[in-house]
Design a protein around this nucleic acid. Sequence first.
DNA 1: CGCAGCTGGTTCAATTTCGAACAACCTTAT
DNA 2: ATAAGGTTGTTCGAAATTGAACCAGCTGCG
Lengths: 169, 169
Amino acid sequence: MAAGDFESRWLAPDVNAVWTRFLHVTHRLEHRIDRRLQEHHGITHTQYEILVRLADSDERALRMSDLADRIVTAKSAVTYQVNKLTDLGLVERQKCDTDNRGVWVKLTAAGSERLEQAAPCILSLVRGLFLDAINCDQAAELDKLLGIWSDNLDEVDRDPDGRLAPEHG
Amino acid sequence: MAAGDFESRWLAPDVNAVWTRFLHVTHRLEHRIDRRLQEHHGITHTQYEILVRLADSDERALRMSDLADRIVTAKSAVTYQVNKLTDLGLVERQKCDTDNRGVWVKLTAAGSERLEQAAPCILSLVRGLFLDAINCDQAAELDKLLGIWSDNLDEVDRDPDGRLAPEHG
DNA sequence: CGCAGCTGGTTCAATTTCGAACAACCTTAT
DNA sequence: ATAAGGTTGTTCGAAATTGAACCAGCTGCG
């Protein structure tokens, strides 16, 4: 088997190591944040992310689908979690005047408060684990990489099985 | 509120953006790989990862706990998935002679074959999405970052709530 | 030896996620 | 107007994940 042949079906060992490590680290990060959040603040990482996205938005409200896009889950999962958060009083649904199908999910005062309680704890964790390790240049570099990956994902979303663009065509 | 005060509780906007983007991209990647794997090869990403870890190991076998560490899930999830893979004939359990509690999970010929079928499909996706975007220097840089993050995670695992080392102590 | 404590793996109930199916509503074209 | 096609959000059943409880076997110390 030719070297190029090998390369085309498998990954070079070092590159493979980076990928494996990437998966491993992202999973561990996710896991650790989730655990900290649940133990100290009684909410899931998903729920926390919903609160954050809402707080970051104009009017502190977002549409269900918009939320689903931002936290990258199925719509049904958003319905499920918004129900939970509503029960907790951290979030409320409001009718959408311009679209009768639509629902605005809005952060309540209690939700805002809960977020402000939880955020420092999580942000210090994220800083300690993730951000303190990189300087400005590296952050910029990483951001650039993330941008490219994101664009690539957009492209794959348009053409999930890569039929349209066969090898640099 | 002083600027430093703000900084200590929240993240600077640009750094925050990197973190948000990181979460978003990693979730999308995960999601896309999972989907491709299920549609084309009828196995989950978790299951695929198990096969990969086994294939990468001496004797093409690993202990249950070892597997749990490598794919970063609860032990019970490994039990569940190994049962599924056993039903599919892709994996088999073997007694451990040195420890009667222990179980070796071993890749079967069928498992090996299935992995060889699925791998190119996934690797080309990973390449296209992730790896082609980075050159050697960037890969090295990323690997270094991942190493630091991993070390930080090790440290947090030893001291989950950061009581022992209060602020650069 | 014998017993306390630890580790490896499974079982179980509870939680979360997913995708498909669905109903309601918007949009566009004719 | 109206019919076709796309969106929005919910419901539902199936699958996956988790942590706690548990048993069995190892380890170390008296």
